[in-house]
Write a protein that binds this DNA or RNA. Structure first.
Lengths: 317, 317
DNA sequence: CTGAAAGCGCTTACAG
DNA sequence: CTGAAAGCGCTTACAG
């Protein structure tokens, strides 16, 4: 039994002849070691737990994809769960996942309940957060800055000569990402000497239908609006087509900017939508590498990685 | 120790006073039972393994989302991995996942290597496949019929008076879903007395840029084409905008039909794209329920569920 | 280079 | 209603 264990773990001190016999038999009988027993006795699992707000959301799915690419190659497993954007559910999910004794935890969210933070800290395992470059992460953080991205887009619009810039986003409650984008929008307005106007700020479910409704409401309510920064791509796409339906030229009558890469936005006609491209896949890859490296080294120094973003200037602004 | 075990599993035969003491202490110290030990001794894990072609693809992510909704509520965990559309990698991934001794396996694919089928059958655990209503599944199958969907869309086009209908899809190799859609296309042509024309069939990476290129090639190469059935939504969206760029009226000059729900296709102007809406989320929910029910009953009767599809008729046809 | 002993953290099955 | 014994399938640490 010990010899099989050694061979499968690639330990030295096994004769070539024995090694080959073991491999042959393992192959023939289709033996796959029981990971539960392995992790019980070795006191380390190969399970990484990931909690995202929604598994079905392509943005988060892309990051999970990146993680999976690396973890699979390194012999780790990815257990996923979603919180439905609720800190309360996040806590319940994290607690349940800890029953698997994961060797690392990934949270696509940086706003947690105090008890969730305490629970995770107590585990003494690496925890990586993303979603925003949080000022005070639980442990490590791999992200881009929503504040800087929101500011960059607003500066872009100002640079193009727009002065009455509306801001429309997903619901801000419990959503640090959106909150930070809005802070960036405010910061850019301020440095340009433009006044913030609460009547130019909107939020709603991030759905194209809502985006359409918001665009309509904004243009009707503030006829002097000359640009709309949709800090959510699904709102942007809905707003874009609503502008077409209303016969408003984009960007002639109103410029439209989005946030995040949503494939269709680069395709739409007559003008593709200017947006912020975030490194979704890379965040997953870097997170997984960081976890794997730390488990190998046994290091526990928190890591902070800003992977940046790109402002894709297109015809809509 | 036994008493704590009983209380946490909700076993009877514990006095109320003891039960309360146990809960109080468990809460205070934040005790979460080690699932590895549980599954080792009880010989049943609470892990469901899911393999999809690509985690980042929104279609598959939506099904995983549905599974996660149910599994989480029932106390199960979802371990996900992707095969990159490769049967060889699928085999490696399935084998690795079996090390977790999952209580059930989900495969978003119905074309496997013989050794993968054999390996899974040997485990004596429920296996659910989806992607297509496979004729000979490993065990259970929860899906819709790509053949019927492909036929229904082609019949729709014929019913609208189109006669020279091109078919463009993702690469067919190792992709039963696309293969079946094409069979449905052929069946509909045949019942309508229309001739199949190999020069009207195309495949390529399912990317909007490829869709644009294909539309261009089809219209140039077969000037008499009057409809294009893109059996992949990302191709459809690319083709749709390319038609606009080329100044071709849709559907006046050429009708365009898609496959699968891709949010933007319901938004585009001037005409939304006719498509097949598949029950992605429901497939996940039904799959998870089926797994949970079977584990509870101990039944091992294979189940076959056809969840159907909807043909969403829109302006583009 | 190979193997026997001990034990990871639980639950099953049995005794009281 | 409560608890002691045995053991799940492995690896660690030690002996030869």
């Amino acid at each position: 039994m010990m010899t099989v264990s050694r061979v499968l773990r690639g330990a030295p001190d096994v004769s070539d002849a024995t090694r080959e016999r073991v491999f042959a038999i393992v192959d023939r009988v289709g033996y796959v070691p029981n990971q539960a027993a392995q992790s019980l006795v070795s006191r380390r699992s190969r399970i990484v737990a990931a909690v995202v707000p929604s598994i079905g959301n392509a943005m988060f799915a892309e990051t999970l994809h990146g993680m999976s690419d690396v973890l699979r190659a390194e012999g780790y497993f990815l257990v996923v769960a979603h919180s439905g954007y609720s800190p309360r559910e996040e806590h319940a999910v994290v607690k349940a996942l800890l029953g698997q004794r994961p060797c690392g935890v990934f949270l696509h969210n940086t706003v947690h309940r105090a008890e969730t933070v305490a629970l995770l800290r107590k585990q003494r395992i690496p925890v990586v957060e993303t979603g925003d470059l949080a000022a005070r992460p639980i442990d490590s953080v791999v992200s881009y800055s929503n504040f800087r991205a929101g500011r960059a887009m607003t500066e872009h619009l100002i640079g193009r000569g727009y002065r009455r810039i509306a801001f429309a986003s997903a619901l801000r409650r419990n959503n640090d990402r959106v909150h930070e984008r809005r802070r960036g929008y405010h910061a850019a307005l301020k440095s340009a000497g433009l006044r913030r106007d609460p009547a130019m700020e909107f939020e709603g479910d991030p759905d194209p239908v809502v985006g359409a409704r918001l665009l309509h409401a904004i243009v009707d309510g503030s006829p002097d609006v000359d640009a709309i920064f949709f800090a959510s791509e699904r709102l942007a796409i809905g707003g874009y087509f609503e502008a077409q339906r209303m016969g408003l030229a984009v960007p002639g009558r109103v410029a439209i900017a989005g946030f995040d890469f949503y494939e269709a936005t680069s395709q739409v006609l007559p003008a593709a939508i200017t947006t912020i491209v975030t490194p979704r896949h890379e965040i997953g890859v870097v997170t997984a590498r960081l976890l794997v490296d730390r488990l190998r080294d046994g290091s526990d120094a928190p890591i902070r990685r800003d992977l940046g973003f790109e402002l894709a200037e297109r015809g809509s602004t």
